[in-house]
Design a protein around this nucleic acid. Structure first.
Length: 112
DNA sequence: GTAGTGACGGAGA
DNA sequence: TTCTCCGCCACTA
């Protein structure tokens, strides 16, 4: 076990605070954490979030609102199904009204 | 030690 | 808007 990278826990913390029926992007989280150029790390952290049940990874999509991470879920439509259950409309793996359901941590959460 | 890859994002065309 | 290229950090072979 290495020293726990705060980056991971921060990502989890932010993701866990995503309100019901809202979504955010990897870049938004990365920017909030001060790693705007490391959005990939956020996605990578999400990959490890499988061990954290409190991490609604299905609420995290790319900046286009595309469910790029759905392949990492058990089913093929599990991610979409979860989001639709929260009132998020999805079509062709892309979130509709993305601007409406988008949740920006850098705006909603206190500045780091 | 080097190269390839990835749940991404931004800039340029 | 989409496509391509580059950069970013961490992991794997």
């Amino acid at each position: 076990m290495k020293e726990s990278i705060n980056f991971f826990e921060k990502v989890y913390e932010v993701a866990a605070q995503i309100p019901f029926g809202r979504v955010t992007s990897y870049g938004a989280i990365a920017t909030y954490l001060g790693a705007a150029r490391s959005a990939r790390m956020v996605g990578w952290a999400m990959n490890a979030s499988h061990n954290n049940n409190d991490i609604p990874a299905h609420r995290v999509v790319n900046r286009k609102g595309l469910l790029t991470g759905k392949h990492h879920f058990d089913g093929t439509n599990l991610m979409q199904q979860l989001l639709e259950s929260e009132g998020v409309i999805i079509k062709e793996n892309q979130i509709q009204n993305f601007e409406t359901v988008f949740w920006d941590p850098s705006k909603e959460l206190p500045i780091l």
